[in-house]
Nucleic acid binder design. Sequence first.
DNA 1: CATTATTTACCGAACGTTCGGTAAGTCCGC
DNA 2: GCGGACTTACCGAACGTTCGGTAAATAATG
Lengths: 200, 200
Amino acid sequence: MTTTAAARRGRPGYDLDRLLLVAARTFTERGYDGTSMEDLAKRLGITKSAIYHHVDGKEELLRLATDRALDGLSAVTDEALAMDAPAIDRLEHVVRRSVDVLVDELPFVTLLLRVRGNTPVERRAIARRRELDHAIAALVAEAESDGDVRPDVDPALTARLLFGMVNSLVEWYRPARGDASTADLADAVCKIAFEGLRAR
Amino acid sequence: MTTTAAARRGRPGYDLDRLLLVAARTFTERGYDGTSMEDLAKRLGITKSAIYHHVDGKEELLRLATDRALDGLSAVTDEALAMDAPAIDRLEHVVRRSVDVLVDELPFVTLLLRVRGNTPVERRAIARRRELDHAIAALVAEAESDGDVRPDVDPALTARLLFGMVNSLVEWYRPARGDASTADLADAVCKIAFEGLRAR
DNA sequence: CATTATTTACCGAACGTTCGGTAAGTCCGC
DNA sequence: GCGGACTTACCGAACGTTCGGTAAATAATG
């Protein structure tokens, strides 16, 4: 999807996409506030000022990076909401596809989940996230009224715990050769979340 | 338990404990790097320099705050490891008591879970956390070899998902009057984690 | 009971450094 | 020679920290 950037004019160097990946990775490792423009420049091998050729400033880097994660996650929920299937199946679909997005866009999603609301950009990201959370909570509630989700726990709480578990992936998952496939990972998450960790 | 601090000598004002609580809360809200000493001072109603009467610097505030969380969580695992019961029961005990600590020491635990490893203080906190994670992973593995935990998911993965779910509490739980009691919360967590969210 | 010592808490003004960001000009491939 | 990519040099503001001195309480002394 990154359009191999073939035959771009002018002096070769970074384009916005490559810069954004490095920025997201660094923000994720050191935190947004803990990362200076100088840090980014060093890691990119260019000077601080060169970054301002590509973006208006530090906050725009954050906006573009969090938007990328949000776009991926939004697509997943839209996809599920459009499905013609029982709520419980749509819910499982959201979980599986969310794991895909978490893995594929790991630095961006990790960054999104760490944003705290200190700036307008961060608050907008949080607001978009909240919409997704509400959509998922509604899905859980619907599945419960279908009789497919346990009725002895508040559906809003169930939704939070479920996605607390899913989102915790960003805390420890690191892609590696020979690692279990994303599908296997999603399988494990669904087993534990839907059927529980106790042997039956 | 806070020993009303009766009859302390010297000019009245903040002591270390009260200062630490405000610091932890602010670090948690705005992030450690996103919080300036001036921010803290403003919230405390004293000047920046007054803070240096109580601690050596900003990093020490972080160290004392994360240690408080780690001490609470360490006590929980020690407690469980000393129990004379099947591993699965000790595991459930760790989950329940961890919820207690998360709720009681919310600002401190939240702060701990957000630390990224930028400084020696942060790296030490992460190392202590890792020890706890290993102890819990071993507990899950033991419960699995007892036949009490499902054998079709890697126990290390099960442990991560379980505590990913438990730790996600800090992302949304806010103590409030009339709120469900901590025990009810721990019940819900155990139900979802051990038996799954699907109705049976 | 007044005085003095000690303890604890705090203030205001600076220090050196680093921050995000800007201005003006150079480099390089089509 | 056009246009995108980058550099050197710099700015004002904010950062964490230090310092000399002050304020207000208790404890010890006469």
